[in-house]
């Protein structure tokens, strides 16, 4: 059943997306929240790779293959790499904030971080 397998990456992407959102919403630990964000992000990798996949396609390195050969889409892979770079920065920044928060308040719970509300 190739058509079921073909849509599997999209199901996985959707599943990861909701896992990430659920994790963020219910998180009681700042590191857990950051990791949930990373899980949410992996759904975009899955989606991009799923979109670019061609059945029977080879890797898009054109050094040793004939020009007419079917390859997977290199554009989405470039997008995904950019995405990884950008998001690594965000995760690093967030984790640095968590460290700072722990130093200042001795807690890693989002509820204890709340000084401003209303």
């Amino acid at each position: 059943m190739p058509h079921v397998l073909a849509s599997l990456p999209y199901f996985v992407a959707g599943w990861l997306f909701f896992c990430g959102l659920y994790g963020l919403t219910t998180s009681r630990h700042l590191v857990h929240a950051v990791i949930s964000l990373a899980v949410l992000q992996s759904s975009t990798y899955m989606l991009l790779l799923g979109i670019g996949y061609r059945t029977g396609g080879t890797a898009p390195v054109f050094v040793d293959i004939s020009p007419g050969r079917l390859t997977v889409d290199p554009v989405v892979q470039a997008l995904m790499l950019t995405d990884i770079v950008v998001e690594a920065v965000v995760v690093a920044l967030l984790l640095a904030m968590v460290v700072k928060a722990y130093e200042k308040s001795g807690s890693v719970s989002p509820s204890d971080l709340r000084t401003l509300r209303g």
């Binding site: 963020l24 700042l30 929240a33 965000v90 967030l94 904030m97 928060a101 000084t115 401003l116």
Partner: peptide
Amino acid sequence: EEPAPLQGSFNFAV
């Protein structure tokens, strides 16, 4: 130096 900016910018970032 204070906890409030961490809260504000953490929520903003997430």
